[in-house]
Design a protein around this nucleic acid. Sequence first.
DNA 1: ACGTCTACCTGTCGGC
DNA 2: TGCCGACAGGTAGACG
Length: 272
Amino acid sequence: MPELPEVEATRRSLATSLVGALTQGVRMGQALRWPLGCAPDRLVGLRVRALERRSKYLILQFEGGAAVLLHLGMSGSLSFVATPIAPGKHDHFDLQTDRGTLRLNDPRRFGAVVFVSGLDDPRARRLLARLGPEPMDDSFDPKEFHAQLHSRGAAVKSLLLSGALVVGVGNIYAAEALFLAGIRPTTAGRRIGPARALALHLAIRKVLGRAIDLGGTTLRNFSDAHGHSGAYQDFAMVYGREGLPCKVCSTPIRRIVQGQRSSFYCPKCQKP
DNA sequence: ACGTCTACCTGTCGGC
DNA sequence: TGCCGACAGGTAGACG
């Protein structure tokens, strides 16, 4: 589920409730992608200082420097409620605070909750230090983006998903941004000139920005921490629309597989 | 260094 | 009704 807009929607919906809260207890369900990295008790008695986001990781920072990295994987979502109901089959992490309980529900368990003593902790660095630029930051520079694209032979879709050129773009928004930029997902990075690179740079920001404003995309079960669904799926131009007419030119949308993932594109609007 | 593939796990849906 | 395969929003790590 969650790409950058969904993670950001989650962060925004949680920040007010969590910042300043005091942790009081932890409940673990089934194992997630990685072990927590500390005894659960270590998470009790900490004051939340901030809730940040880097790429698709949420970073729950505590006073004193410790932090919890949260990743939602493919199927994770967070909720925050004053008085939680009994945990269900897929509720794998509860963090109880004096203001309510933060709960991670993740049926596929590709998500993760990792405790680190600080952001310079090796475990944190291994996950965060090598990430590409944030799409909405100045560090995501159009000229550098073009230079990186131009130096690679792989398909532009794969390059977007790799997180090396820019982070936060997943399978849905890669398809949507490439449609907006008029570029086929199979186009080799090195075949993309400055003008198309600039168009793609703009398209990535536009698509992600719009999706953030709409609270993300809800395909099956994503919702923010207060249970609100996203609305971006109603505006998708190509994702999940195989065989349906292109909203611009009516040509049927095609689906292909790249790197074991579906890609959707309009063969007329998007040029090789 | 780069590009590609595997593995992790559960649920849902369509076809027979 | 049940079985079976395809597919689903991510990504670290292994391999050539």
